[in-house]
């Protein structure tokens, strides 16, 4: 089976055939084993071992961690990739953007109001977690549509804080 793997802005074709893989035109031996008693796996590619932990989020989405760095990896077969290519245009929607809480915490201050124009990098909400205040910044220039939280409110990870366009 041939897969197209997206990782860190690169696209790498990997054809899997038993204990052999063909990647960027060259065929190599490869195995992926679980390390007993741990959550780790070990990849051996042409005799070169790499320790990894991997979690699947389904639909070919993998989170792969090695030596403390985590990478979000997408593994698609050719057919899915083709279909994805046909529908990608319509899937990219225009519309309001939202600032979400990157972690659970407590809203200390809201720095903007509905109707405010903000520039990319401007502080929107100050969120406290682990006794540190973290200023969450606008990811892009725009106008605040709605403020969904107020000072003193506890928020969950991923919760909508500010909507803007």
């Amino acid at each position: 089976m041939k897969y197209i793997v997206g990782i860190a802005g690169r696209e790498i074709e990997v054809e899997v055939d038993g204990d052999r893989v063909t990647v960027i035109g060259s065929t190599r031996t490869a195995s992926l084993r679980s390390i007993p008693g741990t959550t780790s796996r070990q990849l051996v590619l042409d005799g070169r071992p790499t320790g990894l932990t991997m979690r699947s989020a389904g639909r070919g989405q993998w989170s792969v961690e090695t030596r403390g760095d985590r990478w979000e990896v997408e593994v698609l077969d050719e057919r899915t990739r083709h279909i994805r290519g046909l529908t990608a245009g319509s899937a990219r929607q225009r519309g309001p953007k939202t600032l979400r809480a990157p972690m659970p915490g407590l809203v200390v201050r809201v720095l903007v109001e509905t109707g405010h124009a903000v520039t990319a990098g401007a502080g929107l909400v100050v969120l406290e977690a682990m006794k540190m205040e973290n200023e969450l910044k606008a990811p892009a220039t725009g106008v605040v549509r709605a403020v969904r939280v107020e000072a003193g409110q506890a928020v969950e990870k991923g919760q909508e804080l500010v909507e803007f366009e």
Binding site: M1, Y3, V5, I7, A8, R10, I12, V14, V16, V21, V23, I24, R28, A30, S31, L32, R41, L43, L45, R48, T50, L52, M54, S56, G60, W62, V64, T66, D69, R70, W71, V73, V75
Partner: peptide, 24 residues
């Protein structure tokens, strides 16, 4: 910011492809 060399990227891509293949 994490960075990957080409060789590391290939290794992780192969690992992910093998894991996906096994899961399927």
């Amino acid at each position: 910011t994490p960075a990957l060399t080409d060789r590391e990227a290939v290794a992780l891509a192969v690992a992910a492809a093998l894991a996906e293949d096994e899961a399927r």
